[in-house]
Simulated scan of single mutants.
Amino acid sequence: MNNLLVTPRYAVYFSPDKLSPWWALGSHWLGRDEHNDAPLQQPALEGISAAELYNITQEPRHYGFHATLKAPFRLAAGQDEAGLISRLGTLASRLRPVPLGPLRAATLGNFVALVPEASPDRLLDLAAACVTELDDLRAEPVPSDRLRRRVETLDAREIELLDRYGYPYVMERYRFHMTLTGPVEQSVAARVTDAVASQVAQLNATNPMTLDRLCLFVEHAPQAPFQRILDLSLHA
């Protein structure tokens, strides 16, 4: 049997606390609770039907509501989940929370995501630490992993980062985003942005988001949905 059929992939993400109104917004928008892989009621929207919303959120629903800090990876030979959790705990103990400031829905390429209106202080350093300080635990990508990254769309620096860290959008190319849709036409993206604008503005005013935890997600088998198995708070 091909070991890749049973080898899990792990990812280090940020996702708000389950009691946070931001988590309620994002998880219900995607229609899934990533803690227990349970479906959630998606919102009723003007201008976007229930069927359309379900379809355009299918891709991000697989991963759960999150922002990537270290992209999905398999563990190297000799490494295990317990060791990863221990190392992640050590890292979390040294990192300070990062206030993200106001967020907005924006189109990134062909999808819609929540992004900070301005680049927060220390965010790039935190994301870089998650990439570099856990990288010795990561197995080298297999050919299918590289195909997933659509190398033909990357520039020389992104290919360099992909080869070094297994993901092209790290270090100075990192951009914090919490994905709301898969690929959509520009007209659909505009309707999505309008649909979430008022709720995002309200949460910015009443509950500004802080990156206050590292979350460990796991994909137990290829095509299985990612599940959130651990939150580690940042206190330093």
Rank of each mutant, 00 (worst) to 15 (best):
L103P: 11
A129L: 00
A190Y: 00
L154N: 12
Y174D: 03
E34H: 09
R104E: 09
A77P: 05
Y13M: 02
V170N: 02
T193H: 10
E133P: 00
D17Y: 00
I159E: 03
L91A: 10
P225F: 15
S233I: 12
L84Y: 03
P143I: 03
F14E: 01
P222V: 14
F176W: 13
T206W: 12
V192Q: 15
N55R: 10
N2W: 07
L45A: 14
A129E: 01
G89E: 06
V200D: 04
L180G: 00
A92L: 12
R87K: 04
N3I: 12
Y54W: 15
A118R: 06
T206C: 14
N36W: 10
V131L: 10
A50R: 04
R213N: 08
F111L: 02
C130P: 09
E219T: 14
V12S: 02
C130E: 09
T153D: 10
E52S: 09
D125P: 08
H28V: 13
D125T: 15
A197V: 07
Q79P: 15
R173A: 00
Y167R: 05
A67D: 09
E34Q: 11
R9K: 05
D163I: 01
S86H: 05
L126C: 05
S144W: 02
R138P: 02
R61K: 07
L162F: 02
L154G: 08
T179M: 05
R74F: 05
A127N: 15
N2Q: 13
P39E: 05
L69F: 08
A195H: 07
V112M: 11
Q58D: 14
S119T: 10
Q79N: 13
L154I: 07
L4G: 00
H235F: 13
P97S: 06
K70A: 05
E59Q: 15
R87Q: 02
F14S: 09
R122W: 06
M1V: 12
S233G: 14
V142I: 01
A92N: 14
R228W: 10
R104S: 09
A205Y: 09
F217G: 14
A205P: 12
D135P: 04
L162I: 01
P39Q: 04
L91I: 05
P72W: 04
L19R: 11
D33P: 12
A195W: 08
I159G: 03
S144F: 03
E133N: 03
L91Q: 07
G182K: 06
P183T: 04
D231W: 14
P141C: 01
F14Y: 07
A189N: 12
P99Y: 02
A195N: 08
A221K: 14
A11N: 06
I48K: 12
H28D: 14
P102Q: 03
V115T: 06
R87F: 00
N110M: 08
Q79H: 11
R191Q: 06
V184M: 11
A224P: 05
L30H: 10
Y165G: 06
Y54T: 15
V188Y: 12
V112P: 09
P116S: 00
L30W: 13
H35P: 04
R74W: 01
S86A: 03
G182P: 04
V192F: 15
A189Q: 07
L137C: 04
G109W: 01
A76K: 05
A118E: 09
T179K: 03
N55A: 13
A139G: 06
